[in-house]
Design a protein around this nucleic acid. Structure first.
Lengths: 257, 257
DNA sequence: CGTGCACCCTGACCTAAGGTCAAGGTCAAT
DNA sequence: ATTGACCTTGACCTTAGGTCAGGGTGCACG
């Protein structure tokens, strides 16, 4: 009359693996049961119920180190612990739902990190200026960087650019700037464009594209540099364009970096 | 002109730890950046964007081993992978919500594992028979075991017991059975009760409490034994009661175990 | 009666996604 | 010149088990 079930049957009953049961033994969550005369563990009904309780708590995300204490607590503390477990489970669920939102935005590009209003503006501007999808991506990445590196200056920057876009001369410059992505670095138009941009910014100092906040603080130069170099790997003409533009500005007394 | 940010700044930007960034390097999720002349890593803007993408996928539960392939895939496969990731995330959310339900039932006892209709019946019976809370718990555990060990016979068992409860003689037997929990094992009433139970079951064979399905299959005897012994540690009189009852049944030609 | 197969035993090592610690180099400021 | 915050590598720790090795047990089939 071998009494009780073997570890495999107990595990199947509780919906877990044999190894998990032995793991629970090793960590003291459930006492070792009687052994039969060949050394096999033999589980009784109380063990099976205990295994189901352990599994239920573990599946709810309770660390095994706490499960034992919870199950052995008196009814009041047991109930309190369950309330706490449910709270933590709710937090995890809410967290995953938030991550799902972020993920959805990642699926539509890097829109995740920009406010919807800015994205709508970007889409309008992209249509006006005949941006390619790659251009839109790069512009978006630039905005993400600005927002991440200078959060307090981001809204200001967006509204400055937006008001600038009312001026046909500014629009024309931006168009030529993006067109320059396709130029060879030694194209003579690079020089012309750098001059035109410097002239424009010098006559509209409020429009200086990197807001003042960027250069405040110790690491301002680093931030500016990071931003200014963004995308240059893909657009060689921009490297020279930026150098020329900075030189023009510096010679006009505006020390950019 | 030290160009780029250090690992600590990059990690803060992406909302992760320095160690996580190094971990991503080791696993090839992001290339090692340039080092400055003191050996520090220097991250550029593209690296920062990559880190944010990695973090977003990892936070959605994508194993790091897959994150690299997803981010380096062409746009079509990238989009498909994100759809897949979102599906898995939804599964995890649904799973956690289900676990929360199970947990709530655990908080109210072991109700988790029984259908509501059965619980309602149990509550009514418990009120009729003046069960103590401990009695209710033990009865519930017995039902959980029956359901787990003989799932296909559970409904049948419940309806047999329910119809039996229409008979005052059966109700009286059940009351005495639970009352016996308090008796000493050598109480003469144990003998009386065993005889009365055997007589009753012999005249109502349809009521045999362990449904036929229990003894079907190779491990039927083990299952029965597990059930029959449940609770005996706490109720010594039941051990003798069960032995006497089984002997009476056997001598009437019904071989229980 | 032996052989295969499924199950059990222990113990040692492996996993993912980092965390922690040690021992030392670097940077900016005081 | 020293403090404190940051960086470097490398080795070990963590959770909740999974996998493998080497060996024992129980039962059915030929």
């Amino acid at each position: 009359m071998t009494d009780g079930v073997t570890i495999g049957q107990a595990a199947a009953f509780a919906g877990i693996t044999v190894k998990a049961v032995r793991h629970y033994h090793k960590h003291g969550l459930i006492d070792e049961p009687r052994r039969d005369n060949s050394g096999y563990r033999r589980y009784g009904s109380a063990d099976l119920l205990r295994l189901v309780q352990i599994r239920t708590l573990a599946a709810a995300g309770v660390p095994l180190a706490e499960v034992g204490a919870i199950l052995d607590a008196d009814p009041d503390r047991f109930a309190a612990a369950l309330v706490d477990v449910e709270r933590r489970l709710n937090d995890r669920i809410d967290d995953l739902i938030a991550r799902r939102e972020t993920l959805r935005r990642l699926a539509a590009g890097d829109r995740a990190l920009l406010p919807d209003s800015v994205l709508a503006k970007l889409d309008r501007v992209a249509a006006d200026l005949d941006f390619t999808p790659d251009d839109v991506t790069m512009a978006r990445e630039g905005l993400v960087l600005i927002r991440a590196l200078v959060p307090e200056g981001f809204d200001d920057y967006v509204s400055r650019v937006e008001s600038g876009l009312d001026d046909p001369r500014y629009v024309s410059l931006v168009k030529r700037l993006w067109g320059a992505a396709e130029w060879e670095p030694d194209d003579p138009r690079v020089d012309e464009l750098a001059t035109a941009m410097a002239d424009y910014y010098l006559s509209h100092p409020a429009l200086l594209p990197i807001p003042a906040g960027l250069r405040a603080g110790a690491d301002g130069a680093i931030r500016y540099s990071l931003l200014a170099h963004h995308g240059e790997e893909q657009k060689p003409a921009w490297i020279r364009l930026r150098a020329l533009f900075e030189a023009r500005m510096r010679s006009a007394g505006i020390d950019i970096v």
